[in-house]
Structure formats: structure tokens, C-alpha cells
């Protein structure tokens, strides 16, 4: 095994174990915190695949933003932190439905994985250029309209949130 493989399997192990923690833990708070390690592992794999900018954005947005939001949400709504995920009212049919849905998602993903014509550029051992420059160029030339629309959407969401928050006073 070379360094690449060791690091890859390390991150893959982190992702799989923590993702299982997210799904199987009976406390909501454990799931939320397990998500931290999942995001971290995915970011590590991105970094390993030379997508340095994507890796950092993954940590920045998912760990710094979304996860904090989820944890705040769980913490501030008292009592749901200790509720068992399976309550008495859901019967055995839940398992059947869940199995069907997840099996069909798995089939779809496997089908996609095998049929889509993936664009695989030759892997390079050492990668000198940053994906940052390429991303910036593409964002401000080819996809400039999408970029601006996304920015305006965020601005609208921002103003809307401020408006809702101010309503009380």
C-alpha cells in the first residue's frame, strides 16, 4: 500500500463508521455530532482527489454552517434530544417501507454508477494547478448568470430572514 491508499482507506473508514453512527444512533444529538466526522471524512477524500477547493468548502459550509445550524436546532428544541428514534406508535410496516425505499435508491445509484459515461481525466501524481483558478474563471464567464441568480437568491433569503426576525419588535 502506498501513502495514497493508506490515507484513502483511513478517510473511507471514518466516513463509513460515522455515517453508520448517524443512521443507527438512537439519540438525535449523537447523530448530529457523528455527522461532523462524516463531513470531515468526505472533505478528506475530496482533498485526496485534488479537489482542494471543494474540500475546504465542504468543511466551511457543512461543518461551519449547516452542522452548527442543525445542532442549534436540536439543542434549542428541548426534549427532542433524548427521544428514541423509534417510538411506540410506528409498527413493523415502517421497516418494510424503509427497506423498499432504500433498496430502490441503491438500485438507482448502482444503475447510474454503471451506465453514466464518466469523464475520467488521467490521474496525475502531483497536481500543481489549483482548482480554484479554473472554478473562478468558469463561474465568472460561462456560468455568470447562474452565479448572479444564486447571489440574488441568497440576498432575498437574507432580507427575508431579517424581516421575519424583526416582526416581533
Amino acid at each position: 500500500m502506498n501513502t495514497f491508499q493508506i490515507v484513502f482507506y483511513l478517510f473511507a473508514l471514518i466516513v463509513i463508521i460515522s455515517a453508520m453512527g448517524v443512521v443507527f444512533s438512537r439519540k438525535l444529538m449523537y447523530s448530529a455530532f457523528s455527522l461532523l466526522f462524516t463531513f470531515f471524512g468526505v472533505a478528506g477524500i475530496y482533498a485526496l482527489l485534488n479537489a482542494d477547493f471543494l474540500a475546504v468548502v465542504q468543511i466551511m459550509i457543512y461543518v461551519g454552517g449547516i452542522l452548527v445550524l442543525i445542532i442549534f436546532g436540536v439543542m434549542l428544541t428541548t426534549k427532542i434530544t433524548d427521544v428514541d428514534m423509534i417510538s411506540g406508535k410506528t409498527g413493523k410496516w415502517v421497516y418494510l417501507g424503509a427497506s423498499i425505499v432504500s433498496l430502490s435508491v441503491l438500485t438507482l445509484l448502482l444503475y447510474m454508477f454503471n451506465t453514466v459515461n464518466w469523464n475520467l481525466p488521467g490521474a496525475t501524481a502531483i497536481y500543481h494547478d489549483s482548482s480554484l483558478d479554473a472554478l473562478g474563471t468558469v463561474l465568472l464567464t460561462k456560468y455568470v448568470l447562474t452565479f448572479l441568480v444564486a447571489a440574488i437568491l441568497l440576498l432575498i433569503a437574507f432580507i427575508g430572514a431579517a424581516l421575519i426576525a424583526r416582526k416581533g419588535n
Binding site: F33, L36, F40, D52, F53, V56, V57, I59, M60, V63, G64, G65, L67, V68, I71, S130, L132
Partner: peptide
Amino acid sequence: VGLFYIFAVSSFGVI
């Protein structure tokens, strides 16, 4: 992306 990286990992502290 060094500068951005430092900024991103500081969010682990928050968590």
C-alpha cells in the same frame, strides 16, 4: 487554498 483552509477548520472549534 491555504488562507481559506485556516478559516474553514476554525469551524471545528465552534462544533
